[in-house]
Design a protein around this nucleic acid. Sequence first.
DNA 1: AGTGGAATTGGACCAGGTCTAAAATGAGGC
DNA 2: GCCTCATTTTAGACCTGGTCCAATTCCACT
Lengths: 132, 132
Amino acid sequence: MDSVRQLLDSAGIYATPQRLAIGEVLFVGPQHLTADEIYDRVRSRNGGVSRATVYNTLNLFTEKGLLREIFVDAACAFYDTNTRPHYHLYNVDTGELQDMEDDHILEHFARSLPAGTRLKGVDVVVRVGNHG
Amino acid sequence: MDSVRQLLDSAGIYATPQRLAIGEVLFVGPQHLTADEIYDRVRSRNGGVSRATVYNTLNLFTEKGLLREIFVDAACAFYDTNTRPHYHLYNVDTGELQDMEDDHILEHFARSLPAGTRLKGVDVVVRVGNHG
DNA sequence: AGTGGAATTGGACCAGGTCTAAAATGAGGC
DNA sequence: GCCTCATTTTAGACCTGGTCCAATTCCACT
């Protein structure tokens, strides 16, 4: 139960009740959630957390490297608890997003797609910056 | 000059003056533009095109496979005239987006980054669907 | 207890992008 | 040439995810 507190500590994040509540929703395992899903889950478990705090906290966690933002369509960001560089499989029809673990997926993706799905495209974004 | 018309024809898109104007802005070569940039360029060249038409047309072109949408941050979509599966280099500080042509970039990206930039992360989205 | 800086809050605000209802366009038939 | 009707365009209202802001609360420290 205190693993979330430790995680925040190790990232240099001051642990508040709200941040712990949000962390407990997020860091139960690898998952992809939207801000709204996170907001709903935190509320139904702990009650009082405002939308603004959820956004603040998600941005803070992202900045500190505990989360990664994924943009897969214009109208909603996913937050991924797996922060290693990795691949995603996005189903444009269902809106599902899942991790792909195969390191050679780029060579194989066409062969290894889930049954019943058809390839629509592959985008790789290598994110760089000028500092930090 | 009529190559845009031919492109629209071959994609089964009825060629209107507005669509041709937008096509002429887009299909001059490989590039990444935002909807707003496209709107501005069309207006400064041809005048009368409404924002709604630009969005309609971009969606139509995307649907018909002439364009690809790229989501790289929450607040703005890029439209890429290169529709083959390929990689992008996004500079989080400048907002620049460029194509990467190296087919083995995933193995080499860490070594081949532009001078003065540092790796922030790699996201690969393999887009699939249940039909079509 | 008192103080000051950080965190939280609700609500106003912002900006892409979509929707809608009305007007304009234009190809096909006459 | 001109009607007709479906398609396209348009302006502006609208929606919605996300940010900003000023006011309040919290809490570590004295």
